[in-house]
Write a protein that binds this DNA or RNA. Structure first.
Lengths: 336, 336
DNA sequence: AAGCTTATTTTAAGCGCTTAACGAACCAGG
DNA sequence: CCTGGTTCGTTAAGCGCTTAAAATAAGCTT
């Protein structure tokens, strides 16, 4: 059996309270302290987090809900969040929600039963009711790469509007005028679309709503949607995909139609994942400062957990356009 | 405050024992049962996992240690494991160990303090001492995509020997005779190398140990090693990388040297990740039955947790060679 | 209707730890 | 040598739940 505090106390010849006090660095006489420490060493004693959490201490565990761990961008975020959390002495319970409000509600509920100290909700967390509930019950929550304007909740994200704006400006500067967007059904995509529209407006180009389509975030759907866009009579000359996977799916759709990239079609992704560097051709994309965002979100949450945070904040970081080989001068430019 | 079992008992007008019994589906009179259920509904009562675990019940939480969550293959495994675990009512605490024996020891220790019900150790879990310790203390453990012949522990993995053999045979059939291997410092790579050597032997080719190099699994190191291999006076005509990332890093190294693939150099990866499909050129690689492996490993662990498993097993699944565009006929063949 | 079973509940003792409250031991001052 | 203030340590209640054992209620028999 694993040793308990009683075993340590007996071995050290003191009461369990004394043992507890030395573990928590409370005032304890030098001699007892030594005896206890010695006993702990000898028994290789590790206190039970369960028991101490039951008395009101933290579990040092964070619930991390994200859309899909298999998505490389998400996985990378998870890794960064994990690193920072460990540095701060926390573990992560990770759950993929698949953008499913039912799962979101289920997992938050389950994790609360397990007494996690707080939640990081990443990507497109949809269930606003759940967030409100957590907030109302004073459970620490921070949103990552997402924000809901309707509620007052801490969040850390990239400036999606700026990202969309930059991408679109870049495309326009290459002569593209008919630019499609393949979005995801999440708030960040909405922001990027806002940026996209603003850029079009600023250059005096008209906005064609039929050029904006929303995917279910899967590779397959991305490819299907890109295909549909390319099959219309006057197809777009550029596609702005709201993540790298959708962008690569678009490359595949284009390839099936014998379109060469960027000669016949320019494609831009988002996230600057490993995928974007190794694809054929390498993707022009938008880098998110994952590292900073994730460290920040963890620190932020822990502040809340420790009750140090005063006011709600929304932290917005700047994205960076990375130009690679998937975008080029619009071939139709001369015709116009 | 969250409602406790006392609140439910009071509201239902019964003792807490009765409430506990209805939660655990013990014999309880119809009337009391209804009253309790009603009270639970009304209070939106959720029992504390902490408290019940303290009395000896499961936490329904699995510790999942893997080398690096940011690696797409690993992330995909994590996703599958997670799915199956959730189906079976378990959550995952995920930790990246970076092949670091210190971290392996630290994280297992931490998670044990948190009373996880068992461990899945994935990828290249190096710290055999830790595994032995877990085994000795009767803590359920299953290895995933890894096995240590020196100890008797449950494991689920692909037949790495067969994978290495197939890759090499494929390359040989294309006329390659000088085939390099970029391995990882893990047991699965050792197996693949065994398969590689066997294939060479079976075709009467000689084995050149200098063609076998071991990376630290990072992209950068893969690229560096591939570069070194290509810079020798009689470079290999094919590279077998032990995972897709290393393969793509090799592509980059080749590209820097103006080598075209597969014309000047054939490259094979392993794992069949998203990366291998979207790279330039798409990679010939080996598919692991991730889905099955991961379901199996979870079921396996849960059997152990529930005390249903009798004997230790090693489950080996078959890999499948997927031929894409990164391998081709050896250009030097005619010269020979 | 007493006596005996059986079905249903309650009592109460933990699980391993924290912490407020209390007590003992010690030292200085008077 | 007694009083009051410190310092260290112990006692014991409690966190929310489980479960063996005891108590009570209900049902049958004769």
């Amino acid at each position: 059996m694993k040793p308990t505090i009683y075993d340590v106390a007996k071995k050290a010849g003191v009461s369990i309270a004394t043992v507890s006090y030395v573990m928590n660095n409370q005032k304890v006489g030098k001699k007892s302290k030594e005896k206890v420490l010695k006993a702990m060493k000898e028994l290789n004693y590790k206190p039970s987090v369960l028991a101490s959490a039951l008395t009101g201490k933290r579990t040092s565990t964070i619930g991390f809900l994200l859309p899909d761990l298999a998505n490389p961008f998400v996985a990378e975020m998870a890794r960064r969040v994990e690193d920072r959390a460990h540095e701060r002495g926390f573990n992560l319970v990770i759950c993929s929600t698949d953008f499913d409000t039912k799962k979101e509600a289920l997992y938050t509920s389950l994790l609360r039963q397990k007494s996690v100290d707080g939640f990081i909700l990443a990507g497109g967390f949809k269930n606003v009711e759940v967030i409100k509930e957590l907030l109302q019950e004073n459970i620490p929550v921070v949103l990552l790469a997402e924000s809901h304007s309707s509620i007052s909740v801490n969040s850390v994200k990239v400036d999606d509007f700026a990202g969309g704006y930059e991408v679109t400006s870049h495309l326009i500067s290459l002569g593209h005028e008919k630019i499609a967007v393949i979005a995801e059904d999440v708030t960040s995509s909405q922001e990027r679309i806002r940026g996209y529209k603003q850029a079009l407006r600023d250059k005096g180009l008209e906005i064609d709503e039929s050029m904006i389509v929303t995917s279910d975030s899967s590779w397959e759907d991305g490819k299907r949607l890109a295909g549909e866009l390319l099959d219309i009579s006057e197809p777009p000359t550029a596609i702005f995909a709201c993540n790298d996977i959708l962008a690569i799916a678009s490359i595949f759709a284009a390839r099936e139609r014998k379109l060469s990239i960027p000669y016949d079609l320019s494609i831009v992704g988002f996230d600057n994942t490993l995928l974007s560097r190794s694809s054929d051709p390498p993707l022009t994309t938008v880098e998110q400062p994952i590292h900073d965002m994730c460290s920040r979100v963890v620190d932020f949450l822990i502040e809340e957990i420790e009750g140090k945070s005063k006011t709600k904040q929304r932290i917005i970081m700047l994205p960076r356009l990375i130009i690679r080989k998937s975008t080029g001068v619009c071939r139709l430019k001369n015709k116009v």
